[in-house]
Design a protein around this nucleic acid. Sequence first.
DNA 1: CACCAGGCAAGTA
DNA 2: TACTTGCATGGT
Length: 219
Amino acid sequence: MNRLNLLLNMYGSMLKALGPSSWWPGETPFEVAVGAILTQNTNWQNVEKAIANLRRAKVLAPQKLYRLSEESLAELIRPAGFFRLKAGRLKHFLEFLKDECGFELSALASQDLETLRPKLLDVKGIGPETADSILLYALNMPSFVVDAYTGRVLSRHALIPEDAPYEEIRSFFMDVLNPDTNLYNEYHALLVRVGKNWCKKKKPLCGPCPLNAYLEDPI
DNA sequence: CACCAGGCAAGTA
DNA sequence: TACTTGCATGGT
């Protein structure tokens, strides 16, 4: 079976087993982007508390957050962990938004993916996963998101080496899949859900993985 | 109690 | 270039 059909079969079996995901949670594209930074190495539950704090303080908008002091911002996002670090990263992202599009996120979507992605990666505190999450889930651009679960699920099934770098895993999908925003969106969400249930870090086995039907190496 | 969560950057050798 | 460490809260 070629890689395209393999990936499409994986997708189909995950969707059948788990149902659609409705990702990414967030009321606005800006809120999604903020969540992408806050969730770095952090449980989503804690991110929700931080976002709730921002909403309660009525600063969950680009210009509002830009005017807020970094110290106050840090205090509001404290539940998300790494709060001083992430306050700085949010400030860097806001500075980028001001310069690049005058705080108007939707204006970014008029740029090519190949143009915008490197610009995001230049922002201090935005690495590949955060950049792709913003591109895909906030801006609806077809950039496949790779995270720890993605690598874990694929390597446990012996589809990629365990130490495969980010860009290689991303290409594993993007080289053969059509640049379909809805497909990339749901695919990443399903991989995370499969990872959470069947590819935990310490506990590898929690029953048969829904991908087993199509893969040589069942777990 | 130990371990982990939808990473990234900076430092070391 | 290839590791290692700092960043920090909250749930299991």
